[in-house]
Design a protein around this nucleic acid. Sequence first.
DNA 1: ATTCCACCGGAACGTGTGGGGG
DNA 2: CCCCCACACGTTCCGGTGGAAT
Length: 414
Amino acid sequence: MGMFERDTDIYRDRDALREDYQPEQLVGRDEELDTYQTTLQPVINGEQPNNVFLYGKTGVGKTAATRYLLDHLQSDAAEYDDIDLSVVMLNCDGLTSSYQIATRLVNEFRDDTDQISTTGYPRAAVYDMLWNELDTNGGTILIVLDEVDHIEDDSILYQLPRARANGNLETAKTGIIGISNDFSFREDLSPKVRSSLCEEEIHFPAYDATELQQILQQRADVAFHESVLEEGVIRLCAAYGAKDAGDARQSLDLLMKAGDIARDDSAEHVIDEHVRQGRTSLERGRIREGIGGLTQHGHLVLYAVLTLDQQGKTPVRSRDVRPRYTSMAERAGINPLVTRRMRDHLSELIMLGILDVTERNEGRRGGTYREYSVSMDPELIISAMADTVELVGIHESIEKLLERESTSTLQDYQ
DNA sequence: ATTCCACCGGAACGTGTGGGGG
DNA sequence: CCCCCACACGTTCCGGTGGAAT
């Protein structure tokens, strides 16, 4: 027997729980798929494709539906000699500008050996390269921009649909499929862009609890061997996704995590307890990821709120976070940021789900302000920070603070 | 209805970093 | 080598906001 043994596995096909798994049937999206299919029809007819705008919360099947239909579209298009269809899918997460999108698109069309840098060129030069690539490729080109709301300027969304009219493209017919979690993104678009990008709109509503359970069941049937899942596991995972507005992805991630934990335990069944452990583990990962991406100052601000929380001083308004933050910065030998900037860091921590905020208004006497509190187990955050953050002297301060917590002598920090 | 508080958050501007092309 | 470009992160300035107080 070697060092590695095959796990006696509860899984039949674990990949069925992965996000990129493509089930043969999409649950609960019949209407949306119908409309979607109709808007793609022109492609098969060899006409100029429609631009489509899909919106709906995360994990409601927008991307899945797109992949599903485009797969079919591509294989069906292959039946017709006069149709030359290319599909480019680009996730805009982490890309903030049209410029970034343009460079990525150029690279999508280019050989691995011929990639361009994502910075450095004049904007117009990148667009020229893009038109060039599109025209060289030719035919019908569908460009899917997933999470398109991450782009902060309209430019590419304005340019792409008009490229042909503006004489930048000769042969290629392009269609854009924009996918967004954020409906307000649509409102923020300039009217010209909105009318072209959003000529067809499809709304994906959140899954309800029943649909979520159906989806989980469908995947679980493939993923696990029979009767591995204990009664209630599916329901628990579905509830987890449902609390955050019908998010199937979250539910599936959790189910997979629970399965993995069960497997590590060499358990024969996945039980509620595994799901609960999975939740903590996912949560931990999320925090770690969020914290890893913070600036030094972001860490200091977080530390400030954490220590205040440990002293029972939360919820705390930004005004009262400030002195703690400055003294933290001093300890670390770093110049503290200006108040305005500190508030930005607080907001960022909220976006990451690490802090909570409530808006308060005391009117003429007190004015409006926000109160911050720690939104999850401080121990989790502290352990994540200990791993990802290097700030001389600060960890020690925190640890002392936590120890002294019990003896409640905290003058040091007053 | 109007005033006023306190701070929120947008916007314009500055600086440092890293990659371009010629 | 030079100067150009985009971008992340900060600072400065300031108009906006919503509800208690008047």
